[in-house]
Design a protein around this nucleic acid. Structure first.
Length: 711
DNA sequence: GATAGGGTTGTTTTT
DNA sequence: CAACCCTATC
């Protein structure tokens, strides 16, 4: 089977951000009149959009519904600013993913015929990182700090919990994941630990636990400082802190004259504050916030769509614009979306206006179980393909990564090329993280999380020996050199009972790392590390061959980076186009662009002609965890709304009636999100795909035929 | 005292 | 299927 995991090279265009912004701050760059293409704004924008692009001044709030050409408006706004003579490095463009930023810049480039270099474009986190690297010293950080991802942060939190002797408590203590979430909420939403507990984790509402938690967080913070590590929240905290420093805030503000923020409904308190601090430094207060409260789906990460509402209060004389025409979906899909979202009581009432001519009603299909669901979806996709719809115009959007499993198997069986954007990211897989841990130690030998991964690989060293070795090593100059020296164990680890075998294995293992430096070529180093890790993988995993193949892919990917340092920097923030995905290319000779299988969250901002939404049944979508709390339940409905509004022409809801749980099969009802809809906004049908004899029956032939005829 | 391995648990969404 | 807890073994 021609299967490629992880990486599609042709997709990958690497960019070093530093080159773009190297000259950015401090000195004023002499004004160069750029030669750009002329743009006919009136021809390419509708009245609402043109109005916005023609009035780029002062604070602006743009409420842009799904499919309204929001991205187009932002792209033209940036182009307009550049044409007016604003320099690229005076523009800050905050987007929800770095990929989105790259795509917007690319579109600006196409419009202008020239690449604008130096725009401060990216996520809050990646822009923050650029400032923090530059001013690390002021913040008391070493400039070569390493950014932990969520997995690392959780691991460090677990170490902190262990150190705080939580076992002394006779009450149940939050898990490392919960603890990390509690801390994150408190930072991102500007709340005390106690408030967060009362708000989201009332089961831990006890003085003892809160006190202990605060102690754990102190340890966690100290560990980060000691290990030269920074987590995602820190990036925001430090950026915010930099803006408190008057001189630096002024320096930044003098250079950044125009701020554009996309997806403002998904900003949290601290991000909102950062924007405010930057904008207020500049007398003209040029800021454009773009968002749609109906598409706010990141409250679980601290986002609050209230930020959109309060925006006008915060910025006096803020002008408000709406883009209400929808260019994406046929009226039937739009009607359904409007019909669904109106059930949210805490949502602002508004409706999108259609511009497209009539299409077909969305389908709701009842199936037996998940296997039948997978068969229906794949069969229908094959039918669509044979009717001339390219696979890359079709998407299957799931609420949770686990919903995609069955479908994936069926796509594979039918040899349909697909790309998965869900589940454990490539760079988060355990064996990938193991290799990266080695690289991190080469860059920063005081990284506790990475050490603990490495120690768990070395035979004879467990968690307690690992902690002891790290403690000894963290106090000395050259940890790696010490670790290959027998004397070190005799002198510094006298009291601890580390087995002879453990010491011997550690010495021979560390010898493999000791000659590398952070300036080495990452691809070469990874190749070496793979041979070091091979035995370990073979002994622990049945699928070790697959895992080694993953590691080889990682090594190929690393060829794009000259040094380990640059490689690591890009991994943690996902600055590149390389996304975690699994690609199954099928076996046809001509390469066909694959179908997308994605979570709804990751499908934000994207669109397809045909969208399938599986698992529209009780407990799955809406997720059983969201029930009972109006806030989370309404957010769940917004997730549904986002999924619906990705579709241009055709939409399929699929509802299994039997779900296989670990307790065996269970009969489940249809999703509330379907049953609450007005019957006229969708077309209901049941499909039995294959009879027991293997003969097709009961397929409502003309139903699907009519669907295609109308396209 | 510490490690390795077996059995059991339970799974939203992500920068 | 990975992260956790418990226990047999070194």
């Amino acid at each position: 089977m021609a299967e490629k995991k992880g990486i599609i090279e042709e997709d990958y265009v690497f960019e070093f951000y530093e080159e773009d912004y190297a000259e950015s701050l401090e000195e004023e760059i002499p004004q160069v009149v750029e030669e750009y293409n002329e743009i006919h704004f009136e021809e390419n924008l509708n009245d609402e959009q043109l109005e916005i692009v023609s009035n780029l001044k002062g604070p602006m709030l743009v409420i842009a519904g799904a499919g309204s050409g929001k991205t187009r408006t932002i792209v033209y706004a940036v182009a307009k600013l550049l044409l007016k003579g604003v320099k690229p490095n005076q523009i800050m463009l905050v987007t929800f993913t770095n990929k989105a930023a790259n795509e917007m810049i690319k579109r600006v480039e196409i419009l202008l015929g020239k690449r604008p270099k130096g725009i401060w474009a990216g996520t809050f986190h990646s822009i923050a990182n650029r400032f923090i690297r530059k001013y690390a010293k002021i913040l008391g950080l070493k400039p070569n700090y390493i950014i932990m991802d969520e997995t690392d942060a959780k691991a460090l939190m677990r170490l902190s919990i262990e150190k705080a002797d939580v076992k002394d408590l006779d009450e149940r203590f939050p898990t490392s994941r919960m603890a990390k979430d509690i801390l994150s909420f408190s930072i991102n939403c500007n709340k005390t630990i106690r408030d967060v507990i009362l708000w989201k984790y009332s089961q831990f509402d006890s003085e003892k636990i809160i006190k202990k938690l605060e102690q754990v967080f102190k340890i966690y913070k100290a560990k980060k400082a000691q290990d030269n590590l920074v987590d995602f929240d820190d990036l925001l905290i430090y950026w915010n802190q930099l803006l408190e420093e008057r001189s630096i805030a002024q320096l930044i503000a003098r250079n950044i004259k125009y701020v554009l923020v996309d997806e403002y409904q998904d900003t949290n308190h601290i991000q909102d504050e950062i924007i405010y601090k930057i904008v207020k430094q500049n007398p003209s207060r040029n800021v454009m916030a773009v968002g749609d409260d109906a598409q706010s789906i990141y409250a679980f990460r601290g986002a609050n769509f209230q930020n959109i509402l309060d925006f006008e209060k915060k910025f006096k004389n803020c002008k408000r614009y709406s883009i209400t025409y929808n260019y994406r979906s046929v009226p039937q899909i739009l009607d359904l979306a409007n019909d669904s979202i109106k059930h949210n009581e805490r949502q602002f009432k508004k409706s999108m206006r259609t511009t497209r001519s009539s299409g077909i009603l969305p389908f709701q299909v009842n199936v037996g179980d998940e296997i039948e669901q997978a068969r229906f979806i794949t069969n229908q996709i094959l039918k669509l393909r044979s009717n001339g719809i390219d696979l890359n115009e079709i998407a299957i959007l799931v609420r949770a990564a686990s919903h995609s499993l069955r479908v994936e198997l069926e796509l594979r069986a039918k040899n349909i090329p697909y790309e998965v954007r869900a589940g454990v990211a490539f760079f988060e897989r355990a064996h990938i993280k193991d290799i990266i841990a080695h690289l991190r130690i080469i860059e920063n030998p005081y990284d506790e999380v990475s050490w603990s991964r490495i120690f768990s690989i070395i035979q004879g060293i467990g968690s307690s020996s690992g902690i002891k070795i790290f403690e000894a090593v963290s106090k000395i100059e050259h940890p790696l050199d010490a670790l290959i020296n027998k004397m070190f164990y005799a002198e510094k680890l006298k009291g601890s009972r580390i087995s002879k075998e453990g010491i011997r294995n550690t010495i021979s293992y560390i010898k493999n790392l000791v000659d590398f430096t952070a300036e080495d070529n990452p691809s070469e180093v990874i190749k070496n590390l793979i041979s070091v890790l091979e035995d370990h993988l073979k002994s622990r995993f049945d699928n070790w061959q697959e895992r080694i193949e993953d590691l080889n892919q990682l090594s190929i990917y690393a060829q794009n980076f000259p040094t380990i340092r640059k490689f690591l920097e890009n991994l943690s923030l996902n600055l590149s186009y390389l996304e975690s995905k699994t690609v199954h290319l099928g076996d046809q000779t001509e390469e066909e662009a694959p179908l997308i299988l994605s979570t709804i969250h990751r499908a934000k901002g994207l669109e397809w002609r045909v969208v399938f939404i599986p698992m529209l049944c009780e407990d799955s979508f809406p997720s059983s965890r969201s029930i009972g709390n109006p806030d989370t339940f309404e957010e769940e409905r917004r997730v549904f709304y986002v999924a619906i509004t990705r579709a241009k022409d055709q939409l399929y809801f699929i509802s299994p009636s039997i779900k296989h749980t670990y307790r065996g099969p269970q009969i489940i009802r249809i999703s509330q999100f379907i049953s609450e809809l007005a019957p006229k906004v969708y077309r209901k049908s049941s499909v039995k795909l294959i009879s027991k004899k293997g003969k097709k029956k009961d397929i409502k032939k003309d139903l699907f035929k009519s669907a295609l005829d109308l396209l």
